[in-house]
Amino acid sequence: MEYYKQLRAYVGHQPLILPGAVAIIVNRDGEILLQKRNQTTWGLPGGLMELGESLEETVRREVVEETGLTIGKLMLLNVYSGAEYHIKMGNGDEFYAVTAVYITEEFRGELQVDYEETHALEFFALDALPETVGKSYRNYLQDYRAHLTARR
């Protein structure tokens, strides 16, 4: 059973602090891989940390599970946390996300939609993202854009 589900058995809907990691996967054309997480919302592949994992191990595991891709060298963009990342789910569960955002241009494998957590996978140009990219993901991608500008 996933760690956060074990915690929920004890605390019910009370707020939790949940660490996780996502990847900004960039193809040769500079496009970003987005994952359609439900019928409307797009985001970055990644998820919650399990007991004993590092954040890097978390993002590697989640990317394989959600996309079928194996990722290579990672660069940490930033870690995001605080009141801005408080989430209340439709079922009443609350949590504060602490999310490590990694960048990689190294990946191999074929995109595979698992249909449990993923409705679609698609690469998008940074200036042509879908309108329905989630708020937190928009923040991450805005910082990624600033990172690209600073590298020039």
Rank of each mutant, 00 (worst) to 15 (best):
E50D: 09
E84A: 15
R8C: 00
V59M: 06
L76S: 06
T118A: 11
R151F: 03
V98F: 05
G68W: 10
L76D: 06
L18N: 10
M49W: 01
N38E: 10
Y4K: 12
L76N: 02
E2T: 05
F95N: 09
Q14A: 15
E57W: 06
P15W: 05
H147P: 00
T149C: 06
E122I: 03
L126G: 06
N91I: 06
L148T: 03
L129V: 02
E65T: 10
L16Y: 02
V113T: 11
V11E: 07
E84L: 11
R61H: 07
E2I: 09
R60H: 07
V113P: 03
G90R: 08
P15H: 09
Y10R: 12
L74E: 07
R28E: 15
H119D: 11
N91C: 10
Y137P: 07
I24S: 00
V79F: 01
Y102G: 02
M1T: 12
E31M: 13
I24F: 01
L34V: 08
E110S: 13
A120Q: 11
D143K: 01
L121V: 02
R152T: 12
L76G: 02
V79E: 14
A120V: 01
L111F: 06
Y102R: 00
E31D: 13
Y80V: 05
L74S: 02
T104S: 09
T41A: 11
L69Q: 02
G134C: 13
R61F: 04
H119G: 11
K73D: 13
Q39M: 11
G82R: 08
G72P: 05
I32R: 02
K5D: 15
E2N: 14
G109V: 07
H119F: 13
E66V: 00
M49Y: 00
K88D: 10
E53C: 02
A150N: 10
E84V: 09
L16E: 13
V133Q: 07
A83L: 14
A128H: 14
G12I: 05
L129Y: 01
G109M: 04
I103E: 04
T104V: 06
V22E: 13
F123D: 03
A146N: 13
G43M: 05
D29W: 10
E116A: 09
T104K: 00
R28H: 11
E105S: 15
L69P: 07
S136K: 12
A9V: 09
V98A: 03
Q112H: 15
D143W: 00
P45L: 01
T40C: 06
L48V: 14
